[in-house]
Amino acid sequence: MSFPTHAGEFALGTFAQVSGRPFPGLVAHGRVRDVSALAPTVRDLLTDWDSALTTLRRLASDPRGNWLGGDTVRVLPPLEPGQILQSGANYRQHVIDLVAAERESAHGATPEEARADAAAMMDARAESGTPYLFLGSSRAMCGAYEDIVLPTEGEQHDWELELAAVIGKAGKRIPRSEAMSYVAGYTICNDLTTRDRLYRPDLKAIGTDWFVAKNAMTFLPTGPFLVPAEFVGDPMQLQITLKHNGVVRQDESTKDMIFDIARLIEYASTVTELRPGDLLLTGSPAGNGAHWGVFLRPGDELECTITGLGTQRNTCVAE
């Protein structure tokens, strides 16, 4: 395969040759160069990100060295993260859809009344509310071109395409005004969810079971690349697009976020120290399978893009 285009001079990823060990790779001009001499993993490169950027920029412009074509390597998730922090209910239109549907069915509101009430709630939440975050498992990750394995448990396997920020330096209680300086780059994540395993009928008071619904192996396709933040431009002006079997299902700008990336970082860092290599997923826009009444089946294909970050293509298979 040829590598998808990405913003900027270069990108980073993790790759493997046939029967070979994974290596951190510098992607430029449609080829990849092994940079394990600099650091054993992409996450290690992030521990001194400013220095690494300077070296990577020099190597990207140097035709010498062992450059490999995309057809000679496997594309793995771009890094193994420390923490995976995931943001729920963070796209305005998506949450309005959910709240309005509940108000129509449970409270008998007209569609117009339900949407007006939901919009007012989201405006108030953006003004004075707080983000909703939970943790994911790195064991759920798979590469941008690997198969998604649909587990036998549950039937409503759904997609949720998201922009993920990659943290580049450690910080606790990070002010919003400084938060974006902690972002090394961005990547694509598709945070799959088995909807009919999300709520536990035996433990209704506890609520959602994120572990079961979201962390099946291969349920977090990530990558293909980590694109440095300086190449991406304004991360709040990126287009998120998902096609299911060729049909566009999600197509929204990141500007629809209720809480922007800086606010998410500020909030997350009041609870936990953020460290280089942590992933912060920023939520998914409207248009998931539950909205369309369509869920994933073996043989289905997903094509996912975010402006400047490349493309994922995954095929669903039965367990």
Results as ranks from 00 to 15, higher is better:
T187L: 13
A216H: 14
Y199M: 14
W210V: 07
V232E: 00
F219H: 07
D196M: 13
F231V: 09
V183F: 11
S181E: 15
L226G: 03
P201F: 00
Y186H: 04
L203M: 14
R200G: 06
T208H: 08
G207F: 01
F211I: 01
R195H: 02
S181G: 13
L226Y: 02
V212P: 01
K204G: 15
G223Q: 06
Y182Q: 13
P224C: 03
F211M: 02
W210S: 05
E230P: 09
N190P: 10
T194D: 08
E230D: 15
G207K: 03
L203I: 05
P201H: 00
L220E: 04
G207P: 04
T208N: 07
G185S: 13
V183L: 15
A216P: 04
E230T: 12
R197C: 15
K214T: 06
P221C: 02
D234S: 10
I206C: 10
G233K: 15
G207M: 02
E230K: 10
P224N: 01
I188Y: 10
D191R: 04
P201G: 01
G207D: 02
D196Y: 14
D209W: 07
D196F: 13
D191E: 08
M217L: 10
Y199F: 15
D209E: 08
I206H: 14
A205Q: 14
D191H: 07
T194C: 15
V227T: 08
D196A: 11
S181F: 03
K204I: 07
V212N: 03
T222D: 00
Y199T: 13
L198D: 00
F211H: 04
K214S: 06
T208A: 14
N190Q: 09
L198T: 03
G223D: 07
S181Y: 05
A216Q: 04
V232N: 02
D202A: 05
L203V: 06
D191Y: 08
D209F: 10
G233S: 12
R197I: 04
L192V: 12
D202L: 02
D196W: 12
A229F: 02
I188L: 10
P221W: 05
S181L: 09
R195A: 00
G233N: 12
L226D: 01
T218W: 10
T187I: 07
A216G: 12
F219P: 05
P224M: 00
T194V: 15
V232K: 02
N190H: 09
L198C: 02
T187H: 12
R200W: 10
